[in-house]
Computed example of a mutant assay.
Amino acid sequence: MNVELITWEDLKRFKNEMLSEIKSLLKPGQGQSKQWLKSYEVRKLLNISPGTLQNLRVNGTLRYTKIGGMLYYKMEDIEKLLEGDSK
């Protein structure tokens, strides 16, 4: 039986790699040129549940705009959210 230990340093490195990948997906000109995203696109991009997205809205972490019955999120705000988590 092989046992592999994961250290805090391993987890930090994984987090930084994951954030780098997500940020590269968000950069304009790399296939993602939309300024506004719908809820399902944000959930898919961040790999979060509808409840988590709702919590981000309710506690003011992620701003949104409601037009009709649809919620829209600025790509810029999502980038700021990710940058805030990486500090």
Rank of each mutant, 00 (worst) to 15 (best):
K34C: 07
I6Q: 12
S39V: 02
I78Y: 03
Q30H: 15
L37A: 06
R63D: 05
E17K: 10
W8T: 01
M1D: 09
Y64M: 08
R13T: 13
M75D: 02
G51I: 08
L19T: 11
G84P: 00
G51T: 05
L82E: 01
T7E: 11
T61H: 01
E4T: 15
D10Q: 03
R63P: 01
D10N: 07
N2S: 13
D10K: 00
D77Q: 04
G29C: 05
E79D: 14
T7L: 13
S49I: 02
N47Y: 00
G68M: 08
D85E: 05
R57N: 11
W8H: 01
N55R: 12
L82R: 01
K23C: 09
M70I: 15
E79N: 14
N2P: 14
Q30F: 15
T52L: 07
I78W: 04
L26R: 02
N47Q: 07
T52D: 06
Y72R: 13
G68L: 08
P50W: 07
L56D: 06
Y64N: 04
Y40L: 07
Y64C: 09
T52W: 05
Q30Y: 15
D85M: 15
L26Q: 02
V58E: 09
I67T: 13
L53R: 02
D10E: 10
T65R: 08
T52Y: 05
D10Y: 00
E17C: 12
Y72D: 04
